[in-house]
Amino acid sequence: MSKPQLYLLKPGYGAGKDMFCPDCALMEGFFVYHPHLKAQVEFIYIDFDRPRAALVELLGVELQNSPALVFAEGDLPMGLACSEQTGRAYINDGKAICRWLGQQFHGMVPS
């Protein structure tokens, strides 16, 4: 089984290149608390601008939100959403990703 891929927006976007995604920062913070869990996912940093080609290819044009934890083709963890276009399982909410990772790998979860 392949590692799920975690898609995060690169910080430093917007007109002044001074913006960052709060949910992506939440993910970065989660891994500060759980450095041993970094090996459980593949980190992929993507640009803010849409279309976000990598996510469109994996999940479809309607599911370009980031952060997104995308599971390998055929890997369908119970209870997770699946893209109607591609059938890939995913989580695209920062707290939900933290919760899933914490539960799966016996780490802390957000309140």
Rank of each mutant, 00 (worst) to 15 (best):
I97K: 10
L101V: 07
Y13P: 00
A54Y: 00
V32C: 04
Y7L: 03
M19V: 06
P4I: 01
Q104M: 05
M19G: 01
D23M: 14
V56Y: 00
F31S: 05
V56W: 00
F20H: 08
Q104L: 04
P51C: 07
C82N: 09
C98A: 15
E73S: 04
A53F: 10
D49C: 11
Q5I: 09
H36G: 11
P110E: 10
Q64F: 08
P22N: 08
D23E: 15
D18V: 06
E73A: 11
G107E: 09
N92L: 09
E57F: 00
P67Y: 02
M1F: 08
V109D: 08
F71C: 10
Q103F: 05
P110Q: 12
K38T: 09
M78F: 12
N65K: 13
Q40W: 04
N92K: 02
G107T: 02
L37N: 07
F20T: 09
V41I: 15
P35T: 07
G16R: 15
G107I: 06
A72F: 00
I44K: 14
C21P: 01
Q104A: 06
A89L: 01
H106K: 14
G94D: 09
G29E: 10
C82R: 13
F31T: 09
V56K: 01
V61G: 02
P11A: 15
Y7W: 00
E42L: 06
Q104C: 07
K10F: 10
Y45P: 04
G14I: 13
L101N: 01
P4E: 02
G16A: 14
Q5G: 00
D47V: 01
R88S: 08
F105D: 02
K17Q: 15
C24T: 04
A39W: 01
E57S: 11
R88T: 06
R50Q: 12
V61Y: 10
A53D: 14
A96G: 13
D93E: 14
G29Q: 13
S66A: 15
F43D: 06
S83K: 04
A89R: 00
V41Y: 08
T86D: 00
S66L: 03
C21K: 08
G60N: 06
G16H: 10
V70T: 08
R52F: 05
G12C: 10
I44L: 14
Y90H: 09
R50V: 12
V41L: 08
M108F: 04
L76I: 03
I97T: 04
G107F: 04
G102T: 02
V61R: 13
G79L: 03
L55M: 03
L58F: 02
V70E: 09
P4R: 07
Q85D: 14
E84F: 11
P77V: 02
H34F: 09
E62G: 05
H106V: 01
F43G: 10
K95C: 13
L55P: 00
G14T: 08
I91G: 00
L9C: 12
N92R: 11
G16D: 15
A39P: 01
L80H: 04
P110R: 13
P11D: 14
M108S: 13
G87R: 03
G29T: 12
C98Y: 07
L101C: 10
L69I: 10
